[in-house]
Amino acid sequence: MELEKRQDVEGFTRKGFICQAIAAGWHHKSPEQLKELANKVGRQRIQVLHGTLDNMITVPHGDTLARELGEDEGVTKIIVEGRGHVLHLEEEKLYRGVLQKMVEKTENLG
């Protein structure tokens, strides 16, 4: 995916890459902010989905996010072996199934 993206010189510009990197650096949330978010949304409604070959955001970041949101209190974490950052394109069927299950689960929560 990364090689394909980099070959698209119109859609993936150097400026776009730099802006994406800057934005990623500013998306920090403290454990307290994540707890507050999970309290407001409801932990049963939160899912962390991560690929083991994600070179943009590594699996330990996903583990930390799930833990801070409350994995032991209902947050779902799914780690997909051998996939990267763009799971919805890399594993479309899997992604649709995971999304469908989450929609059904949250519909039942009321």
Rank of each mutant, 00 (worst) to 15 (best):
D8K: 09
K77P: 03
V103Y: 03
A23N: 14
L87P: 05
E68L: 10
E36K: 02
P60F: 05
Q7S: 12
R45S: 13
E81Y: 03
R43I: 00
T106L: 03
E107P: 00
A38E: 03
K101S: 07
G25L: 08
P60N: 11
L109M: 08
T52W: 06
G84P: 14
L99A: 04
E90W: 02
L3C: 14
G70Q: 01
V75F: 01
E71Q: 10
E73H: 05
Q33W: 01
L53T: 15
V86M: 15
E36L: 02
S30A: 01
I79F: 01
C19V: 13
G42P: 01
I46R: 02
K5A: 13
E32A: 03
V103H: 02
V80Y: 01
L53C: 14
A23W: 12
R83I: 11
G25D: 09
S30P: 04
L3W: 13
K77E: 05
K105P: 04
T13S: 07
P31Q: 02
Q33F: 00
V59P: 04
E10M: 15
D72R: 00
R96G: 08
G11D: 03
L99F: 07
L87D: 02
H88W: 12
C19N: 13
M56P: 13
K5T: 15
G25A: 06
M1T: 10
L53D: 13
V41T: 14
Q7K: 08
D8V: 10
K77R: 09
H28R: 04
R83N: 11
V59L: 06
Y95M: 05
A21C: 10
A38F: 09
P31W: 02
G62W: 06
D63E: 09
W26A: 14
V48S: 00
E104M: 00
C19M: 14
Y95H: 05
E81A: 07
K5H: 15
T52F: 04
Q100W: 07
V41N: 03
G70S: 05
E92K: 08
I46F: 02
F17Q: 14
F17A: 11
R14V: 12
K93G: 11
R14I: 08
I18K: 12
W26H: 15
R83Y: 10
L87Y: 08
T64E: 06
K29F: 05
K35E: 04
E90P: 00
V80Q: 03
V41F: 09
K15W: 12
G16H: 14
F17I: 13
Q44I: 01
A24G: 13
N55Q: 15
K77M: 04
V86Y: 14
L53R: 15
L89N: 10
G25H: 04
R67D: 00
A38Q: 04
Y95N: 06
A21L: 12
T58D: 14
V75H: 01
Q44D: 04
T64W: 05
I78C: 04
H50K: 15
